[in-house]
């Protein structure tokens, strides 16, 4: 199934972390930037990771693989594919924080929320037209594009 994914135009990424900031904001229970970062009850981890070794920078997130190893590995069915968007999404209520998906992901794209004891990952900002990271990238280093099926590593 062809789907839209976030791609990195690595040569023009300056490592400004705005993608990370807006990812965290978009996944917070508050739409207030300060609350999203400073109030524990509104804090949610960003679902991407910044790779940086000057002068190379890029942000890395879930690739929503066609045959997603994390879905196969999930012990509880918390990970599944959203049929409409094609995104691999997490049902937090079902996740027990067993971290098996983390072992299965060759991109290291799943994070441990050790406070809630849940796995968190990119959901392509379900409900938004464009993922927050792409929308707020000042340099078009992130693009949201239709791509062919992704075979994972």
């Amino acid at each position: 199934m062809p789907m839209k994914r976030v791609l990195v135009n690595e040569p023009v990424c300056m490592g400004c972390h705005l993608c990370e900031v807006y990812c965290q904001l978009n996944h917070s229970t508050s739409s207030d930037l300060v609350k999203a970062f400073k109030r524990p009850e509104h804090q949610n981890l960003p679902r991407l990771r910044i790779e940086a070794r000057n002068p190379i920078f890029f942000s890395l997130r879930c690739q929503h693989c066609a045959e997603a190893p994390c879905i196969s590995a999930c012990l509880t069915g918390a990970l599944s594919r959203d049929e409409k968007s094609g995104a691999v999404i997490t049902d937090e209520a079902k996740c027990i924080g067993c971290w098996t998906c983390i072992l299965a992901c060759p991109y290291g794209a799943i994070k441990q929320d050790t406070v809630k004891h849940k796995s968190v990952k990119c959901d392509l900002c379900q409900g938004s037209k464009i993922p927050a990271c792409v929308e707020h990238c000042p340099n078009e280093a992130l693009v949201f594009e239709e791509v062919a099926e992704v075979k994972s590593k």
Partner: peptide, 19 residues
Amino acid sequence: SFLSLPEIVWRERLEITFK
């Protein structure tokens, strides 16, 4: 992290994420 790997290795492993 990925950038701890030699460039040829991380580029190959992350090919699908790059435009």
